[in-house]
Design a protein around this nucleic acid. Structure first.
Lengths: 208, 208
DNA sequence: CGCACTATCGATCACTGATAACTTATCATC
DNA sequence: GATGATAAGTTATCAGTGATCGATAGTGCG
C-alpha cells in the first residue's frame, strides 16, 4: 500500500515574484470573463498551475488579488488623465476630450472600474484591502481636479466653487460609466451617440 | 434515552403571504446593514424566525428575494416621479425640481436604491430573476422620459435626440446618488452645495 | 552527509446556497 | 371524533466556497 504516492507534478518554476504575476494574470483573465464574484480561488489556482492554498502565500485574501489588479488599472487611468491634462489648452474640445478619457477607461476596464467604484461596501472589500483601491481612485480624482482647476483659472468655468464643480463632473461621468457597465442590456441609444450627448451636456453645464 | 425530543418551537404564525413579507422585511434590514453579498440565507431565516430551507418555499433563490425588493423600490420611485411630472410646467425651476425628486429618493432610500441600481451583475441576478427588476427599471425610465419629452415638446431642450438626452440626464443623476451612497466617506463638499451644483449643471447642459 | 529554509501540497474547517425526505399543524369531509 | 389530503416547517445533507494547518519535497550551505 505504500506505493510511492504518484506525487502530483510540482511546478516550482515560479521563483519569487514570477508566481505572483502568474496568479495576477490568471485572475485577470478569469475576472474579465466571468466577473469577480463568479470566480473561485480554485479556478484561479488551476489556471495559474498551482494548488489553491498556494495562493495565500502571495495574497492575504481573494479580495487582495482583485485590489492589486484594481490599483494597477487605476495607475493606468491616472497616467492617461495626466497625459491628457498636460497638453490641455482650455478649449471646449480639449475639455470634452478629457472627459472622454475617463469614460473610455471605464468602458475598457469595466472590472477594474467595478472594483474601484461600484463594489458594495460592507462586503469588506475596501476595509480588508486597507483602502488601497480607494486611494488609487483618489489619485485619479486629484489629477482630474487639477485639470478642471486649470479651466477654472482661465475663467471659463461656470460656478464659483471649482471643487464642487469637479465633484459634480466626476459624478456625471461616473453615472454614465456605471450604468453602461451594470446595465449593459438596457435599451440604450447607440453608444457613441449617448457618449457624445453626455459629454456635450456636461461641457455645456460646466463651461461658460 | 428516547426523551420526547425537545422539539424546537415551531412558529406557524405566518399564514400564507405574511411569511413572505416577514422574509422580505428581514432581508431588507440585513441587506441594508451589511450589503446583499455579505448576508446569508441563514441570517435572513433566523431574523425572520424560520429555518433556512423554509425560505425556498417562498423564493426560488436568494437573488429572487433581492429582486422582489428591487421591484418594489422601483415602484415607489416611479410613483414619485409620476407625481412630480404631472404638475410640471416647463420652467427651469420645475426641471430642477424633477431632478431633485430622483436624487432625494436615492438619498432617502439608499438601501432601496442600492438594491435597485447598484447590485452587481455577473452573479446572475438579472438573469435568474427573469429580468423583472429590469422591467421595473424600464417603467421608471419611461416616466422620466415622458417628463423630459414634455420639455422637449416646448422646444426648450438642447440636443435633438430626446431619448439620448433622457438617458444622459439619468446617468448624470445616477452618478451623484450612487457615489454619495457608495463612497459616503469621500471628502465631499457640503452636500446641499454639491446637489445644487450638480442639478444646476445638468439643467444648463440639458436646457437651452 | 546533515541542517535550515522556502515553496508547495493534501487534508480539513466553517460556512454558503440549495435540495430531499420527513414531520407536523390545519381543515374539509365523513 | 376519526380520516385523509394539503400546506408549512423541520432536520439532515449535498457540493462548492474561502481560508488555515501540518507535513513534505526541493534547494542551498556547512
Amino acid at each position: 500500500m505504500q506505493s510511492p504516492k504518484p506525487r502530483s507534478p510540482r511546478k516550482p518554476k515560479g521563483q519569487g515574484a514570477e508566481r505572483r504575476e502568474e496568479i495576477l494574470d490568471a485572475a485577470l483573465t478569469l475576472f474579465s470573463q466571468k466577473g469577480v464574484h463568479a470566480v473561485s480561488t480554485r479556478q484561479i489556482a488551476e489556471l495559474a498551475g498551482i494548488s489553491q492554498p498556494a495562493l495565500y502565500a502571495y495574497f492575504a485574501t481573494k479580495d487582495h488579488i482583485a485590489a492589486e489588479l484594481c490599483v494597477r488599472a487605476f495607475a493606468i487611468l491616472r497616467q492617461r488623465m495626466s497625459d491628457a491634462g498636460v497638453t490641455c489648452q482650455p478649449t471646449p474640445q480639449t475639455f470634452e476630450r478629457a472627459l472622454r478619457v475617463y469614460i473610455d477607461f471605464g468602458l475598457e476596464e469595466p472590472n477594474a472600474y467595478r472594483v474601484a467604484f461600484m463594489l458594495e461596501k460592507g462586503a469588506g472589500f475596501i476595509e480588508q484591502t486597507d483602502g488601497r483601491p480607494m486611494e488609487a481612485g483618489l489619485d485619479v480624482f486629484q489629477v482630474f481636479h487639477e485639470i478642471v482647476s486649470g479651466f477654472h483659472a482661465q475663467g471659463v468655468m461656470a460656478g464659483d466653487d471649482p471643487l464642487a464643480v469637479t465633484q459634480s463632473l466626476w459624478a456625471g461621468l461616473h453615472g454614465l460609466v456605471a450604468l453602461l457597465i451594470a446595465r449593459a442590456d438596457f435599451p440604450w441609444v447607440e453608444r457613441e451617440t449617448l457618449i457624445a450627448t453626455h459629454v456635450a451636456m456636461l461641457r455645456r453645464g460646466a463651461l461658460k
